[in-house]
Every structure is written in C-alpha cells, then in structure tokens.
C-alpha cells in the first residue's frame, strides 16, 4: 500500500468530527445554532441529519450561505451569530449538514 493510498484511506475511514472540524466551529454552533437546529425547532433542518440536508445542499452552497446571511423562513439574518464571518458560516453549514460519528 502506498503512503498516499494509506493516508487517503485514513481520511475516508476516520470519523469526520475527529479530524476536520475546527473546535471553534463547534463552539459557534453550540452558542448560536443549537437552540433551533438541535431538535428542528420551528421547522429548522435538524443538525447532522443527512435526510433533511440532502435537498438543501443540492441548491448549492452559495444559496445556503446567502440564506444564512439574509435570513430564511424562521431563521433571522446571520442565524443568531451576530459576530460570525462569512467563513464561519461556510464552516457551520458544512458541520451542521454532515452526519457526525459517535465519539
């Protein structure tokens, strides 16, 4: 097995949360997003649930980003994270829309 293939296989098999998520993104999620998305309050797409995110992701990341920035349905502009940057929102969308492996 080549080193390159070995590393690639590690990436594929490793739980996503254990290597790719910036802890700061998780902190932002906990302080701003969890309140609505954890349980799907008010119709908010539930965090980490592939089923509810597939159709949304299909719209394209730019559309999702713009929805967070301008607000969408029950979500206020900036999605309760007044001090988030555009990059934060990109990271948060990626985090929230991806099934997380159990610790």
């Amino acid at each position: 097995m080549s080193i390159r293939f070995f590393l690639l296989s590690l990436l594929i098999s490793a739980p996503y949360s254990s290597w790719a998520i910036d802890p700061f993104t998780i902190e932002l999620y906990q302080s701003s997003c969890v309140i609505c998305h954890e349980n799907g309050a008010g119709g908010a797409p539930k965090s980490f649930d592939d089923n509810v995110w597939q159709d949304r992701l299909a719209k394209g990341s730019d559309v999702l980003l713009q929805n967070v920035i301008s607000g969408y349905k029950g979500m206020p502009p900036l999605g309760m994270c007044s001090d988030c940057t555009q990059e934060d929102f990109v990271d948060l969308i990626a985090y929230i829309s991806t099934e997380q492996a159990e610790e």
Binding site: I35, H37, G42, S70, G71, G74, M75, P76, P77, M80
Partner: peptide, 10 residues
C-alpha cells in the same frame, strides 16, 4: 422569529 414557524421568507 428566532426559530418559530414563519410562513414567509425573511
């Protein structure tokens, strides 16, 4: 609203 049902888009 924050995360209440809202019939129209913001």
């Amino acid at each position: 609203s924050g995360c209440s049902e809202a019939p129209k888009s913001v």
